[in-house]
Amino acid sequence: MPHAIKMQDKYGKDGFVALLLESQGLDASDIPGFMWKRFPTNKTWLSTSGDAPFQMTGGGLPHAALVGVDGTLLWEGNPNGAPKKIEEMVEAELKKSKSGWGKGAIAKKARGLLYGKNAFVDAAKVVADALANAKDDEKEDLEAVAREIELRREAFKKAPKVLSEDARYLEGVKAAENYAKWVKGNPEWENEANAIVLDFQRPEIVKELDLEKGLKKILASAGDKAPTADLAKSLRTFAKKNDGSRMAARATLLAAAAEFDPNKK
Protein backbone atom coordinates (compact mmCIF):
# COMPACT_ATOMS: atom_id res chain seq x y z
CA MET A 1 0.00 0.00 0.00
CA PRO A 2 2.75 2.57 0.72
CA HIS A 3 3.91 2.21 -2.90
CA ALA A 4 0.38 2.87 -4.19
CA ILE A 5 0.22 6.02 -2.05
CA LYS A 6 3.56 7.23 -3.42
CA MET A 7 2.43 6.54 -6.98
CA GLN A 8 -0.80 8.47 -6.46
CA ASP A 9 1.26 11.45 -5.26
CA LYS A 10 3.62 11.14 -8.22
CA TYR A 11 1.21 10.44 -11.09
CA GLY A 12 -2.26 11.42 -9.81
CA LYS A 13 -2.16 14.87 -11.41
CA ASP A 14 -1.54 13.20 -14.80
CA GLY A 15 -4.62 10.99 -14.58
CA PHE A 16 -3.26 7.89 -12.82
CA VAL A 17 -5.49 6.35 -10.16
CA ALA A 18 -4.40 4.09 -7.30
CA LEU A 19 -7.53 2.27 -6.16
CA LEU A 20 -7.34 0.56 -2.77
CA LEU A 21 -9.59 -2.38 -1.97
CA GLU A 22 -9.74 -3.50 1.65
CA SER A 23 -9.69 -7.30 1.65
CA GLN A 24 -9.29 -8.46 5.24
CA GLY A 25 -12.68 -7.59 6.63
CA LEU A 26 -12.04 -4.21 8.28
CA ASP A 27 -15.44 -2.57 8.90
CA ALA A 28 -16.27 -0.04 6.19
CA SER A 29 -16.91 2.59 8.86
CA ASP A 30 -13.39 2.06 10.28
CA ILE A 31 -11.53 2.46 6.98
CA PRO A 32 -11.45 6.30 6.89
CA GLY A 33 -10.11 6.44 10.45
CA PHE A 34 -7.59 3.66 9.90
CA MET A 35 -6.19 5.34 6.79
CA TRP A 36 -6.15 8.83 8.30
CA LYS A 37 -4.25 7.61 11.36
CA ARG A 38 -1.76 5.43 9.51
CA PHE A 39 -1.38 7.41 6.27
CA PRO A 40 -2.46 11.01 6.96
CA THR A 41 -1.45 12.34 3.52
CA ASN A 42 -3.11 9.51 1.59
CA LYS A 43 -4.80 10.61 -1.66
CA THR A 44 -5.49 7.18 -3.15
CA TRP A 45 -9.05 6.27 -4.04
CA LEU A 46 -10.50 3.96 -1.40
CA SER A 47 -13.39 1.62 -1.91
CA THR A 48 -14.93 1.05 1.51
CA SER A 49 -17.50 -1.48 0.39
CA GLY A 50 -15.27 -4.49 -0.23
CA ASP A 51 -15.96 -4.53 -3.97
CA ALA A 52 -13.50 -5.86 -6.53
CA PRO A 53 -13.85 -6.02 -10.31
CA PHE A 54 -12.17 -9.44 -10.39
CA GLN A 55 -10.57 -11.92 -8.04
CA MET A 56 -6.89 -11.51 -7.36
CA THR A 57 -4.64 -14.30 -8.58
CA GLY A 58 -2.23 -15.77 -6.09
CA GLY A 59 -2.12 -16.30 -2.41
CA GLY A 60 -2.26 -13.28 -0.26
CA LEU A 61 -1.12 -9.75 0.35
CA PRO A 62 0.49 -7.54 -0.74
CA HIS A 63 -1.17 -7.84 -4.10
CA ALA A 64 -1.84 -5.39 -6.91
CA ALA A 65 -2.92 -5.25 -10.53
CA LEU A 66 -2.37 -2.61 -13.19
CA VAL A 67 -5.21 -1.86 -15.58
CA GLY A 68 -4.27 -0.11 -18.82
CA VAL A 69 -5.97 2.93 -20.32
CA ASP A 70 -7.94 0.68 -22.68
CA GLY A 71 -9.34 -1.29 -19.73
CA THR A 72 -7.23 -4.45 -20.11
CA LEU A 73 -5.17 -6.12 -17.40
CA LEU A 74 -1.48 -5.30 -17.92
CA TRP A 75 0.13 -6.82 -14.86
CA GLU A 76 -0.72 -8.56 -11.61
CA GLY A 77 1.41 -9.66 -8.67
CA ASN A 78 3.28 -8.55 -5.57
CA PRO A 79 3.87 -4.79 -5.93
CA ASN A 80 6.87 -4.90 -3.59
CA GLY A 81 8.70 -7.05 -6.11
CA ALA A 82 8.29 -4.78 -9.12
CA PRO A 83 7.93 -1.09 -8.23
CA LYS A 84 10.15 0.14 -11.10
CA LYS A 85 8.43 -2.07 -13.64
CA ILE A 86 5.01 -0.81 -12.53
CA GLU A 87 6.09 2.82 -12.76
CA GLU A 88 7.49 2.30 -16.26
CA MET A 89 4.21 0.73 -17.37
CA VAL A 90 2.21 3.59 -15.82
CA GLU A 91 4.37 6.17 -17.60
CA ALA A 92 3.86 4.35 -20.93
CA GLU A 93 0.09 4.24 -20.34
CA LEU A 94 -0.04 7.95 -19.51
CA LYS A 95 1.69 8.65 -22.84
CA LYS A 96 -0.80 6.36 -24.59
CA SER A 97 -3.68 8.25 -22.99
CA LYS A 98 -2.39 11.52 -24.44
CA SER A 99 -1.64 10.19 -27.92
CA GLY A 100 -4.68 7.92 -28.13
CA TRP A 101 -5.00 4.41 -29.55
CA GLY A 102 -7.19 2.55 -31.99
CA LYS A 103 -7.47 0.60 -35.24
CA GLY A 104 -6.88 3.64 -37.40
CA ALA A 105 -5.34 7.10 -37.26
CA ILE A 106 -8.72 8.77 -36.76
CA ALA A 107 -9.81 6.57 -33.84
CA LYS A 108 -6.39 7.17 -32.28
CA LYS A 109 -6.70 10.93 -32.77
CA ALA A 110 -10.23 10.97 -31.29
CA ARG A 111 -9.13 9.00 -28.22
CA GLY A 112 -6.17 11.34 -27.77
CA LEU A 113 -8.56 14.30 -27.77
CA LEU A 114 -10.97 12.51 -25.46
CA TYR A 115 -8.64 11.05 -22.85
CA GLY A 116 -5.64 13.34 -23.23
CA LYS A 117 -7.48 16.66 -23.31
CA ASN A 118 -11.12 16.04 -22.33
CA ALA A 119 -11.92 17.77 -25.63
CA PHE A 120 -15.36 16.18 -25.91
CA VAL A 121 -16.65 18.38 -28.72
CA ASP A 122 -13.57 18.00 -30.92
CA ALA A 123 -13.43 14.23 -30.31
CA ALA A 124 -17.12 13.84 -31.19
CA LYS A 125 -16.66 15.90 -34.37
CA VAL A 126 -13.65 13.87 -35.50
CA VAL A 127 -15.64 10.64 -35.03
CA ALA A 128 -18.83 11.95 -36.67
CA ASP A 129 -16.95 13.27 -39.71
CA ALA A 130 -15.07 10.00 -40.15
CA LEU A 131 -18.01 7.65 -39.59
CA ALA A 132 -19.74 8.77 -42.76
CA ASN A 133 -16.99 7.35 -44.99
CA ALA A 134 -15.38 4.73 -42.76
CA LYS A 135 -14.68 1.19 -43.93
CA ASP A 136 -16.14 -1.67 -41.90
CA ASP A 137 -13.01 -2.47 -39.86
CA GLU A 138 -12.51 1.19 -38.94
CA LYS A 139 -16.20 1.84 -38.42
CA GLU A 140 -16.47 -0.64 -35.54
CA ASP A 141 -13.69 1.06 -33.61
CA LEU A 142 -15.04 4.55 -34.37
CA GLU A 143 -18.44 3.51 -33.04
CA ALA A 144 -16.65 2.25 -29.91
CA VAL A 145 -15.00 5.66 -29.53
CA ALA A 146 -18.40 7.34 -29.90
CA ARG A 147 -19.72 5.21 -27.01
CA GLU A 148 -16.63 6.03 -24.96
CA ILE A 149 -17.19 9.77 -25.52
CA GLU A 150 -20.73 9.47 -24.19
CA LEU A 151 -19.70 7.32 -21.23
CA ARG A 152 -16.90 9.69 -20.19
CA ARG A 153 -19.07 12.78 -20.74
CA GLU A 154 -21.86 11.29 -18.61
CA ALA A 155 -19.33 10.39 -15.90
CA PHE A 156 -18.00 13.94 -15.67
CA LYS A 157 -21.50 15.39 -16.00
CA LYS A 158 -22.69 13.52 -12.92
CA ALA A 159 -19.44 13.97 -10.94
CA PRO A 160 -20.55 17.29 -9.33
CA LYS A 161 -23.69 15.57 -8.03
CA VAL A 162 -21.72 12.56 -6.74
CA LEU A 163 -19.31 14.88 -4.91
CA SER A 164 -22.21 16.92 -3.49
CA GLU A 165 -23.80 13.76 -2.14
CA ASP A 166 -20.61 13.31 -0.08
CA ALA A 167 -20.88 16.97 1.06
CA ARG A 168 -17.75 17.78 -0.99
CA TYR A 169 -19.30 20.91 -2.47
CA LEU A 170 -16.07 22.80 -3.14
CA GLU A 171 -14.82 19.94 -5.29
CA GLY A 172 -18.29 19.72 -6.83
CA VAL A 173 -18.08 23.35 -7.98
CA LYS A 174 -14.68 22.73 -9.53
CA ALA A 175 -15.93 19.56 -11.26
CA ALA A 176 -18.93 21.47 -12.63
CA GLU A 177 -16.75 24.30 -13.93
CA ASN A 178 -14.33 21.84 -15.53
CA TYR A 179 -17.18 20.00 -17.22
CA ALA A 180 -18.59 23.28 -18.56
CA LYS A 181 -15.18 24.13 -19.99
CA TRP A 182 -14.75 20.71 -21.57
CA VAL A 183 -18.08 20.72 -23.46
CA LYS A 184 -17.88 24.28 -24.75
CA GLY A 185 -18.85 24.37 -28.42
CA ASN A 186 -21.85 22.02 -28.22
CA PRO A 187 -24.95 24.13 -27.34
CA GLU A 188 -26.93 21.22 -25.85
CA TRP A 189 -24.06 20.03 -23.66
CA GLU A 190 -23.24 23.64 -22.70
CA ASN A 191 -26.80 24.26 -21.50
CA GLU A 192 -26.70 21.15 -19.33
CA ALA A 193 -23.32 22.15 -17.93
CA ASN A 194 -24.41 25.72 -17.17
CA ALA A 195 -27.41 24.41 -15.26
CA ILE A 196 -25.09 22.23 -13.16
CA VAL A 197 -22.82 25.21 -12.41
CA LEU A 198 -25.84 27.38 -11.51
CA ASP A 199 -27.15 24.72 -9.15
CA PHE A 200 -24.27 25.48 -6.80
CA GLN A 201 -25.58 29.06 -6.46
CA ARG A 202 -28.73 27.99 -4.63
CA PRO A 203 -28.81 29.67 -1.16
CA GLU A 204 -28.72 26.37 0.74
CA ILE A 205 -25.68 25.23 -1.24
CA VAL A 206 -23.94 28.60 -0.86
CA LYS A 207 -24.41 28.21 2.91
CA GLU A 208 -22.87 24.73 2.80
CA LEU A 209 -19.97 26.05 0.70
CA ASP A 210 -19.24 28.70 3.34
CA LEU A 211 -19.38 26.08 6.08
CA GLU A 212 -17.09 23.81 4.10
CA LYS A 213 -14.47 26.55 3.93
CA GLY A 214 -14.59 26.70 7.73
CA LEU A 215 -14.32 22.94 7.98
CA LYS A 216 -11.32 22.96 5.63
CA LYS A 217 -9.56 25.45 7.92
CA ILE A 218 -10.03 23.11 10.88
CA LEU A 219 -8.66 20.19 8.85
CA ALA A 220 -5.74 22.28 7.58
CA SER A 221 -4.71 22.91 11.18
CA ALA A 222 -3.73 19.23 11.38
CA GLY A 223 -1.27 19.70 8.51
CA ASP A 224 0.18 16.44 7.22
CA LYS A 225 0.05 14.78 10.64
CA ALA A 226 -2.25 12.09 11.96
CA PRO A 227 -5.41 13.53 13.55
CA THR A 228 -5.26 14.27 17.25
CA ALA A 229 -7.83 14.31 20.04
CA ASP A 230 -7.81 18.12 19.82
CA LEU A 231 -8.71 17.98 16.15
CA ALA A 232 -11.55 15.56 16.88
CA LYS A 233 -12.78 17.96 19.58
CA SER A 234 -12.72 20.91 17.15
CA LEU A 235 -14.69 18.87 14.62
CA ARG A 236 -17.29 17.93 17.26
CA THR A 237 -17.64 21.60 18.25
CA PHE A 238 -18.07 22.59 14.57
CA ALA A 239 -20.72 19.90 14.11
CA LYS A 240 -22.63 21.02 17.19
CA LYS A 241 -22.52 24.68 16.19
CA ASN A 242 -23.80 23.93 12.68
CA ASP A 243 -26.22 21.19 13.62
CA GLY A 244 -28.64 20.26 10.85
CA SER A 245 -26.28 21.12 7.99
CA ARG A 246 -24.68 18.62 5.62
CA MET A 247 -21.29 19.94 6.73
CA ALA A 248 -22.09 19.18 10.36
CA ALA A 249 -22.83 15.58 9.36
CA ARG A 250 -19.51 15.44 7.48
CA ALA A 251 -17.66 16.91 10.47
CA THR A 252 -19.22 14.26 12.71
CA LEU A 253 -17.95 11.49 10.42
CA LEU A 254 -14.51 13.10 10.33
CA ALA A 255 -14.49 13.39 14.13
CA ALA A 256 -15.28 9.68 14.41
CA ALA A 257 -12.42 8.94 11.99
CA ALA A 258 -10.07 11.17 13.98
CA GLU A 259 -11.01 9.30 17.17
CA PHE A 260 -10.42 5.87 15.61
CA ASP A 261 -7.90 3.68 17.38
CA PRO A 262 -5.92 1.80 14.67
CA ASN A 263 -4.68 -0.70 17.26
CA LYS A 264 -8.12 -1.86 18.32
CA LYS A 265 -8.97 -5.47 17.62
Binding site: M1, G15, A18, L21, L66, M89, L151
Partner: peptide
Protein backbone atom coordinates in the same frame (compact mmCIF):
# COMPACT_ATOMS: atom_id res chain seq x y z
CA UNK B 1 -15.80 1.83 -17.01
CA UNK B 2 -15.72 5.49 -16.04
CA UNK B 3 -11.99 5.20 -15.36
CA UNK B 4 -11.21 4.15 -18.93
CA UNK B 5 -8.39 6.36 -20.20
CA UNK B 6 -6.61 6.30 -16.83
CA UNK B 7 -4.03 3.72 -15.80
CA UNK B 8 -5.42 2.19 -12.59
CA UNK B 9 -3.35 0.37 -9.99
CA UNK B 10 -5.70 -1.81 -7.96
CA UNK B 11 -4.16 -2.55 -4.58
CA UNK B 12 -5.68 -5.18 -2.32
CA UNK B 13 -4.79 -4.36 1.27
CA UNK B 14 -5.51 -5.41 4.81
CA UNK B 15 -4.58 -4.30 8.30
Amino acid sequence: AELKGSPVLIDWWGN
